[in-house]
Amino acid sequence: MNWSLLKHYLLSRSFLWLLFLFNFLGSIYGFYWYGNQMAHTEWYWNFFVPDSPTSSSLFTIVVLLWLLGKRSKVLEMLSMVTNLKYGIWAVGVIITYWNANGRVDATDLMLMISHGAMAVEVVLYNFNYKFDNRVLWIGACWLLFNDFVDYVYTIHPWLQDERFTAYIQFWTPVLSLLVLTFTAFLRRERARSK
């Protein structure tokens, strides 16, 4: 299958509705998943707790806007950087615990596939995004402030245990910076290919 044919399928209304539905349902499940942590967190920090479902919700909104013939450069950018970051973050954390524990369970496998899909889908749709690097600073503020809140006020996603918290605390902002750099590269290459 060539790239132009794949783009045609990715932008077909039936596929976009399917993508919208899967992301919508996944977002709802994600917020449910974080319910206990949100219940144990002060209400004013609750916006920062469910990182992954917030990210998938942003992409869900972007897809809905496309279906309605609308665009939002800022929402497109935020959906890209947050889904990339939290998709990769979750896969990395799960693999870290798998390696340490020496076992794989079905729930972690489901989480790894779903979070990996978050990162893949936004890269796959890079060709359709309209934002440029001038709005990327908003994404930088979003990601880095969230990292600050997560690890200064300890509202990061609950981990299996505390064995790797220090490593995760170090690598999370590094990942944010790498995601921002990668996104800037993708958008620059997209601009050049036009």
Rank of each mutant, 00 (worst) to 15 (best):
V49D: 04
V49R: 10
P50W: 03
P50D: 12
P50I: 09
S52Q: 09
P53V: 12
P53F: 13
T54K: 06
S55C: 08
S56C: 06
S56K: 05
S56H: 04
S57N: 02
S57F: 02
S57T: 11
F59L: 08
T60P: 09
V62R: 08
V63F: 12
V63N: 11
W66T: 06
W66I: 12
W66K: 09
L67G: 13
L67W: 06
L68R: 06
G69F: 08
G69I: 02
G69L: 10
K70M: 12
K70S: 07
R71M: 07
K73L: 08
K73V: 11
V74Q: 06
L75A: 11
E76K: 07
E76H: 14
E76F: 13
M77W: 07
M77F: 04
L78A: 05
L78Y: 05
L78D: 07
M80F: 05
M80D: 00
M80Q: 05
V81T: 06
T82A: 09
N83F: 03
N83I: 00
L84N: 00
L84Q: 01
K85M: 01
K85H: 06
K85D: 00
Y86T: 02
Y86S: 00
G87S: 02
I88H: 03
I88S: 05
W89E: 01
W89G: 04
W89L: 05
A90Q: 03
A90F: 05
V91W: 06
V93P: 01
V93S: 02
V93L: 01
I94A: 01
I94V: 09
I95M: 04
T96N: 13
T96S: 14
T96F: 13
Y97H: 06
Y97W: 15
Y97T: 03
W98M: 09
N99T: 15
N99G: 15
A100S: 14
A100P: 09
A100T: 15
A100H: 15
N101P: 08
G102R: 14
G102F: 13
R103K: 11
R103I: 12
V104L: 12
D105C: 14
D105V: 11
A106H: 10
A106Q: 13
A106I: 08
A106Y: 14
T107S: 14
T107D: 13
D108R: 14
D108I: 03
D108E: 12
L109S: 09
L109W: 10
M110I: 13
L111I: 05
I113V: 09
S114I: 00
S114A: 10
G116D: 04
G116Q: 02
M118F: 00
M118S: 04
M118W: 01
A119E: 00
V120R: 06
E121Q: 12
V122C: 00
V122H: 07
V123I: 13
L124K: 13
L124N: 11
L124T: 15
Y125R: 08
Y125D: 08
Y125Q: 11
Y125A: 15
N126F: 11
N126T: 15
F127H: 15
F127K: 15
N128S: 14
Y129R: 15
Y129A: 12
K130G: 15
K130Q: 14
K130F: 13
K130D: 15
F131M: 09
F131W: 03
F131N: 05
F131V: 08
F131E: 00
F131C: 02
D132V: 04
D132Q: 14
D132C: 03
N133W: 06
N133K: 08
V135I: 08
L136F: 09
W137E: 00
W137A: 01
W137C: 01
I138E: 01
I138R: 04
